[in-house]
Design a protein around this nucleic acid. Structure first.
Lengths: 239, 239
DNA sequence: GGTGGGCTATGGTCCGACCAAGACCAGGAC
DNA sequence: GTCCTGGTCTTGGTCGGACCATAGCCCACC
């Protein structure tokens, strides 16, 4: 950074060097979740870079869901290391969906794979607090809700299953994939079929899944989840 | 953007608005892979924003693996929409691994899930060109290689399987997860066991997997892959 | 002792300037 | 005529300085 002045001659871009510097501090454990980074101006001065380069590096880390920034002087102000993979993953997948990096069909299959995995593990573990969260979501879904609210609770139910599997990575991936197709799924709920009827069917399927997990029947839970997802994605137009 | 001048009063940050604008053009199909974006200066002028804000938005898209930038005047110069999800995913996962968003154990389980899925599907499809790529990687691995080169070919073999499954999303995820733990895996190859012996064992396992896929035995291929991964990750220190 | 108004630190933004890479073009050397 | 050569123009990369808005903090004043 503090090498030959100004320009990017041969070596990587300055913001990239700043990025690597911070990544290095994260990897070495020098920076941990909850820690504050130096102010942008100070970081720039310390690395012999301009503030713009520092900001671009920070923007990348923000896009990766590693840091959060906010103005002000308080304890929580400035730039803090706050890992939030799901949001970053969601946005990444969504934009790639938009740009046709992969077809909707692949997303469906991936969801089936992830949620079968989660349901199977959740049934083996049967963690009480997670089971309760699922029940809560189901109960809330019994109200007379519009599509949007229903969909959010639907997601909450599936997320509870994913997190109950005890695998954070798979949990985050499940959330991300589900969220990234939220708009598409919502659109599918507007199909020709009667909303009330569709809603009832989804509720019934959810209860079956919940019962299977609660009963410790992982294989059945996985099969039910797969059927549940496929039935719904069948309503989604391809690609 | 062209609203009230300068400041972020209430509304989202300017770079965020620029980002949404471009995302919108991607979603609507107005911008497609291969298309060039306007020059930064022009984009800034058109949106009534400063160049810095535009650059930060572009940096985010670059971090998401959606665009590629390079200086110059040629046809390929400037900023172009070039989706490359795997690289972006790799980097995202790696930094979250560094920051302990999830333990190594979760990564192992996720790999098992993904690669079981891929192996099973690859065996059902038995795509000739992919099978050949696998053979090529295996043949190359027969040479007397150091750990690093061997590891790269190892990755190439597994990636070939993933892509042979015909699911691009799962393929990209497989590549990303594998790449993100590349350094860790390499470290594990330096264990106490004799390198030549370990290498022979990996070769033998790879050949078995290849044979199962080539023979169309998806269940066996999946089981072999799982054993293969677990055996190796068993050498990796936890978290 | 409580409260309100500056003070200050910090991220967000704009502007103008310059650098380096790369393609293209004009003009001269052979 | 062909081939090099140097200039020019476009474009991303970078810096420095300036200003804004936000949000704690502190001190003077009531």
């Amino acid at each position: 950074m503090s090498g030959t002045r100004h320009p990017p001659e041969g070596r990587p871009a300055t913001f990239e060097l700043v990025l690597r510097h911070i990544e290095g501090r994260l990897t070495s454990g020098d920076l941990r979740p909850g820690d504050r980074l130096p102010p942008e101006r100070e970081l720039a001065a310390r690395l012999g870079a301009g503030r713009q380069s520092v900001r671009e590096a920070l923007r990348v880390l923000q896009a990766q869901g590693v840091i959060r920034s906010q103005v002000g002087t308080g304890t929580d102000s400035g730039t803090v290391v706050v890992p939030a993979p799901a949001r970053a993953l969601t946005r990444l997948l969504r934009v790639h969906l938009a740009v046709d990096s992969f077809p909707m069909r692949d997303v469906t299959e991936a969801r089936v794979m992830l949620e079968r995995f989660s349901a199977g593990l959740a049934a083996r573990r049967r963690a009480a607090p997670d089971l309760e969260r699922m029940s809560d979501a189901l109960a809330a879904m019994d109200a007379d809700l519009d599509r949007e609210r229903f969909s959010d609770l639907d997601t909450a139910f599936h997320v509870a299953i994913a997190e109950s599997a005890g695998n954070r990575l798979v949990g985050e991936l499940t959330v991300a994939i589900r969220e990234s197709v939220r708009a598409t799924l919502l659109g599918a709920m507007l199909g020709d079929e009667d909303w009330a009827r569709l809603r009832d069917r989804l509720r019934a399927e959810h209860r079956e899944i919940h019962a299977a997990i609660d009963g410790g029947d992982g294989a059945r839970a996985a099969d039910l989840v797969e059927a549940h997802i496929r039935a719904f994605h069948g309503r989604v137009p391809p690609t």
